[in-house]
Amino acid sequence: MDLMTFLQLGDSTFRLSTPLLLACLAGLFSERAGIFDIGLEGKMLAAAFFSGAIAFVSGSVWLGLLAGIGASLALSLVHGLASITFRGNQLISGVAINFLAAGLTVVVAQDWFGQGGRTPQLAGAARFQNITLPFTEQIGHVPFLGPVYVELISGHTFIVYLAALCVPAAWWLLFRTRFGLRLRAVGENPAAVDTAGISVVRLRFVAVGICGVLCGIAGAYLATALQAGFIKDMTAGRGFIALAALIFAKWKPVPAMLACLLFGFLEAASIRFQGQPWPGIGRVPVQFMQALPYVLTVILLAGFIGRAVAPKASGLPYTKER
């Protein structure tokens, strides 16, 4: 494999990891606060549709992004109401959100655009454009470093860089601030937070809100950056892979990034090497390559990660005991 192939593979790894990473961090905030969220998928999907639709109608990708975040936040609020305020089952609420998003996006898309459940193609200012970082001209000629900078680091959309920045930001927020301390505490032992005079409900709603914003960005990225418009079921299980990455990363931001890069790489590889003969094996069916990330998810979660200890109060509604 020459350097160029390698760089191109890395480049698409970054592109494909971005939505996973954002969704994974979204789940991280939610689950660290004690709220299971298997509705990441649904929130991303809703965000993808609304960002694509609004970006098309308004012609502005930024309005699209806002709409995506709004849609995702609205679903987060539903999840919050069900699981925090009314102390319902968080899994059921999450499943409901996934179904709701899967159905509604297609129905509304058909109603608005009449193109069989997709939005029209986005172009120009309705999509996030690739950003060329400064100094590409100057560094481009330097051997090795030049191509790495130009091909791999430069030339991504705004959201890719934003997602990368979210990792240290999430770490700092969780482990270096008062808010982070309380957030982690409420996911481990809400009674400790409550008796310290802090509102468990408010804290959990904030966490679920952060989760909504991040999922919104992830969904908008799918429709307005990675692809040009919304298509049916375009999240394709990314919300669940993000959850798997979250467990794999043991609910920590930096390992979460590494896990998402791994899953992103597998997806990139499955696209890059489609139809190419493998040495010694011959031609591998496309379906096999496409299934690889999912197979790996199962294998990793089944045995390779050791004991993953979830935040202790995760999934449990908080009730004051008598």
């Binding site: 008062r178 309380r182 481990e188 937070v193 802090i198």
Partner: peptide, 20 residues
């Protein structure tokens, strides 16, 4: 909070400011 240190448990809810 079981996986917090003694210190973190003591300050939880009685922090001085936004930074730890």
């Amino acid at each position: 909070v079981e996986n917090f240190t003694v210190l973190e448990n003591v300050v939880l809810g009685a922090e001085d400011g936004a930074l730890l």
